[in-house]
Structure formats: structure tokens, C-alpha cells
Design a protein around this nucleic acid. Sequence first.
DNA 1: CTTAGCACTCAGATGGTTAGAGTGCTAAAA
DNA 2: TTTTAGCACTCTAACCATCTGAGTGCTAAG
Lengths: 352, 352
Amino acid sequence: MELDERDKKVLQAVIDSYIQTGAPVGSSFISEKFSLGVSPATIRNIMAELEEMGLLTHPHTSAGRVPTDKGYRYYIDSLISIERNTDEISSQLQRPVELHGGDIEDLMEEASQLLARLSRYTGVVVAPAEPESSYKHIEFVRLRGRQVLIIFVTSGGVVQNKLIGLDETLSQHELNAFAAYLDQELEHSTLADIRQRLLERMHEDRAAFLRLMEETYRASVEVREKDKEKVYIGGASQILENPEFADMEKLRALFRAFEDKYKLLRLLDRAVAAEGIKVFIGSENPFFEMQGCSLVVGTYKAGGEVIGTLGVIGPTRMQYRQVIQVVDYTSRLLSRLLSERYQRGMIDYDER
Amino acid sequence: MELDERDKKVLQAVIDSYIQTGAPVGSSFISEKFSLGVSPATIRNIMAELEEMGLLTHPHTSAGRVPTDKGYRYYIDSLISIERNTDEISSQLQRPVELHGGDIEDLMEEASQLLARLSRYTGVVVAPAEPESSYKHIEFVRLRGRQVLIIFVTSGGVVQNKLIGLDETLSQHELNAFAAYLDQELEHSTLADIRQRLLERMHEDRAAFLRLMEETYRASVEVREKDKEKVYIGGASQILENPEFADMEKLRALFRAFEDKYKLLRLLDRAVAAEGIKVFIGSENPFFEMQGCSLVVGTYKAGGEVIGTLGVIGPTRMQYRQVIQVVDYTSRLLSRLLSERYQRGMIDYDER
DNA sequence: CTTAGCACTCAGATGGTTAGAGTGCTAAAA
DNA sequence: TTTTAGCACTCTAACCATCTGAGTGCTAAG
């Protein structure tokens, strides 16, 4: 695909205009608004070339040109230069953004909403994966009656809790003893190990604690599941502002996709590999069979390590330049906050 | 408002038909399909009366009749008899529904999705309020480096956790001692008391624990906030299936309302007072300024006490009879599960 | 290689006509 | 007095024809 300078300029002009207005772009429009110093006729010739290469299309004979997915791809890969300039975004905000979620869940929720607010599309954040978490601590708290609260803590700081009712009364003392026993038995085990060992123990141990073990086992399973599932979506309603979603069929498909968190997750996770920001355009993505939708994904880190992904979903006709900046900005912001929070006292982060 | 038997039958016929088809109902249609033994002309006269009373309207001169909000109100209050018959719903399901969420959050999420699935509209569940929770237990777990996990447990079994980084290293031993100290100090205090006392102590105590106290204080504040906020919405996309939401403006307003959880919460909470099932039609509700939307709300209980609300949001033209049954069914189901879960060993619930 | 000129195409707007559904009213029938 | 048949009237939605304008593609001249 060899485009000379002028071809590139025309392609860029068409895509920029189309992103702006949403209407097919005609040759005379380009010739007038962009000072390329050539007549509409020449522009037409170039457009015809670009169409031949599959970068533009025609809705119908007498309409202007519209970018294809391939066109957007080229646009993003070669034409726009993204300024990694957080200042530009910061200055758009009346006051510096603050995320202050008390716990991680709140923080993720807020981050997804921030993405939505800044981009005017829909924000998505996938909670940190906890791949190598191991056993840290268990606690049984006796509440009124025979209720016992199981609190299961992993080395990564993930807490799974579960309220159960026992068939017989156990004192707090007995519970503590049993917790201490488990702490000792399971120290440093991985989640998989824990499950294995608990199963073994359940065949030997006293009946009184059987139920506790059983439930601890379940809690350990749920740690994994819970973590896997968490996808935060912010500003889903914003996407309705875009005229491209006037079509009910499309809209329904999109919202169903939002509800199918598992698919979204797989989609977002593909971006984890690389550290930069990735853009998936329209049909490019096999997991998200949504025509007309693009996705801008980035990652966030804590303590120098990539631990999760976040991004923006919008129509293919998206303000890519701005959105890429927004994702970049938010990913840095979130990374900084997480690092501050987790590592205070260990590492000094001073990139404010 | 005195309607004789025949008037009522006509009103019911009109509303039933309209709910079914979504199209304005004409006099001849009623006369034919419902065996009232009168001619269309008579039906027309009756319809005119009903219109005068504000129970029906006219989209335009030559169209059939459509119920007004007032009409629906009358319909629900006086015309439909709801069979509290869970069998009818159960038999609609291929297999009995099961909710099996590991923790409460999962359970609520599943319940909202169940509501949506059964009703074909959108399900909403408000998490149990924890009005009178008091202090139960605190735990500090040392993770790697200077990270400490604070686990704050209330008497109701709500767990708030928070990961912090300290400026200096404290041993697990020291942490335990401090936790024991707090356990003793704060035993049986209400949340408000705790905050009060922590603030007092923070002026006296050793600097080393100051940070811990501070964060414990914050955690106690967040328990409250976290609880307040949780609204689970299931099947929001389902509402798109209804033709009445083809109007983008309406749709946007609705989805924005879904995102404004706080408002939803206030709306749902109004239903807590009474135990039965309530229906809010269209404009009847001041908090939810949505024309064209109705809400069917119920409550759920644990151990005989009402602890939360749940409901279905759909268009005013809603299958009320079915939805009321669905809400009733789900509320019983959820109540039973919660009771089993919380109270196992204390009370025997055997209404399966 | 560029550009002016021109015929051609097609979507979308405009407007008039028609068919059909359903009403309200009146006067006759029960 | 109530019900009903009959009929004129109203309004929507669908259909069709027409028109306009935007924008193209092609050709031939610059």
C-alpha cells in the first residue's frame, strides 16, 4: 500500500471530516475546507484510488465518501500522531480529577465513570487479576446465634467473606483455634493447593469442623470467580447520544454485550499483553461481533507491573485522538493511585 | 367514580387488549372478541363515558382508545385479581429456578437477573440496609512489605476491607495487640459511636497507631456508604425489546435513571414501608420523572423482618398480572434463601 | 497530470391522493 | 329509556409521483 503525501492528506481530511460531522464527505468540501491547492476533480480522482484500495466507500452513487474499517486502521496506525500530553486533557477539566474510592471496587467504578465522562462514550475497567495469590489468613467471627462469618484473605489482599449458619454452636474460642490451625496448615499455599488440601482434610477431621472446612473451601473457590468476573461499565447511556445507534437492533446487541461481562472480559484481556494503547476497529475483533463499534484499550499498573485493563467503547466513528488521550490519561492516573495506595512507604512515586 | 359491571368489563377489555397488542383498541374489536352481548355502538357510548372520567384517551379522532395512567390505576386496584400462585410461574420454568450466589452480592445480582428473565423487563434489587449495625470485630493482616489489610466487621456480618500502606513496619504481633485493644474498647458500639470514640482516641494515642486508627475510622464511614449505594440492575437491555422505547429521548432518560442509582434507591425505598406489592404507574412517582414507565415493587425479608426491596421496571403498558406474580415469587424465593442462609440452625424454614 | 464541463444517479423532501379504521351523532327500534 | 343501525366525518398511514440537490464518473481540453 503506497500512498504519496497528497493521498494521505486527502484520506486524513476525509476521515477527520467524517468523524466531525458524521455525514459522507464530498470532494468539493475537501477542496474548499482543506487548503490542498487542488480542484474537486483531482480530489475525486484520489478518492477513487483510495476506494480501490479499500480505504473508503460509498453508501450510494451520489453520496460522498465514508471511511472503511481498513481506512480507520490506516488512519490510526499512520496518520494521527497522538500527543502523550496529559496537559491537554487536564486543562479541559475545570478542576483536576480526583478518584477517591474507599476500596478497590469504588475506585474501579469511579475510573469507569471518569473514562465515560472524559470521552463522552462508554468506559470499561477490568478489575486487577490476582493470578498468583496464595493463602494468607483466615478468620472466623461468631455473630449472633449460630451464624459464623468466614473471612478469607489472600496474599494479594483480596478478601472473600461468607456468612454461614452452623448446625451447632461453636464458641469464638474454638473458632479461633481452628483458624489458627488452618493458618498453620495452609501457610503459603496457592489457591489450587488450598483446595486440594482442604478436600483431603475433610476426610479425616472432626465432624464439628467439617462444615467450616466445606465453606472455607467454597470461599476459596469464590475468590477466584469473583475476581474474574468484575467488569465495571460506566456511562453506558452516553453511547445513546450518538446517532449511529438510532438503529434498535444494533443498540440491543450492544447492550446485551455490556451485560455479557465474560465476553467483554476476554476482549479487554487481549490487550494486557502489550503495554501501550491498542485500538480495535469495528469487525476487527472476533469476540465482540459488533459492527460499528470500536474499542480503545489500555492497561494500568501497580508497582511497575501491569495488573489490569481499561478502555472506552464507542462507535467506529469515534474521536480517536481524544479518546486515546483519555485512556492514556486515565490509565496513568489509576496506576499512580494504585501505586500510592498499595506501596506507600515502599516506593516513592512523585510524578504528579 | 361509580362504574357499573358492564363499564368495568369494557374497561378491562380495553386495557387487556391494549396490553396485549400495543395498538389503540376500537369499539368493534371489543364487541367481537369479548362476548358482552352488545353492539359496537353501545361500546362506543361506554367508552365515551370512560373517557369523560379520565380513564381512557384518544390519540386522535379516528383512533381507538388507550388507557390513561388513571385507567391503569383503576385496572390494578379494582379489576385484576392477582393469584398468589407461585405454581403458575414455577410451571412456566423448565426447571425450578436456583439462586446460588456465593456471597450476598452475587445473590442480589442473580435475583435482579431472575426478575428480568421472568418478566422480560428490567429487574432491580436494593441490597439489604444495615440500619442498626454495631461493631463486632476488627482485624489487621500484614501482607508483604508495609501493607496492611484492615478488615472491619459489623454485627450484621457486613465486612469492609481496606488495603493501606504504612510508613513504618509493624509486626503482625503488634497489629494483633492493637486489634485486641480496639475490640475491647469498641465492643457493642454503634457505628456512630465508633466514629466518635476513634476521633477522641486519635488525639491521645501513640503516633504509630495513628494511621491505623485513621484508616479504621475511614473504613467505618465507608461501611455505611457502601451499603447505601448498592442497587443491582438486571436485564436493562431487555427493555429495548419494547416498541414504546423506540423514542431515543425517552430511552436516554431511562438509562440515565438507571445510572443514577441514588434516585432509584429512594424510589424503591418508598415501598419498604408496606409489606405487600406496590405498583407505581407512569407519572405517579415524583422521583422517577419518567413518562411511560411503571414500576412494580415488593420487599424481601430475612428472619421475618423486611430488609430490602426489589422490583421490575417496564413500560406503562406492562403485563401487570404476570409481573406482579413474578415480583411476588422472586421476593419469596429470595426471602427463603436469605433466611436459610442466615439463620440455619436457628429457625426451621420449610416452605419449599 | 490537472481541471472544467456535463450527463447521470440516487436519496430524501414535498405534496397530493386514497384506503381504512374508527369515531360521534342522529334517528329509528326495542 | 336504552340500544342499535346508519351515515357523515376525521384523521393516519401508505402509496405514488415529482422534484431538488448533492455528488459522482467520464471526457476532452488545458
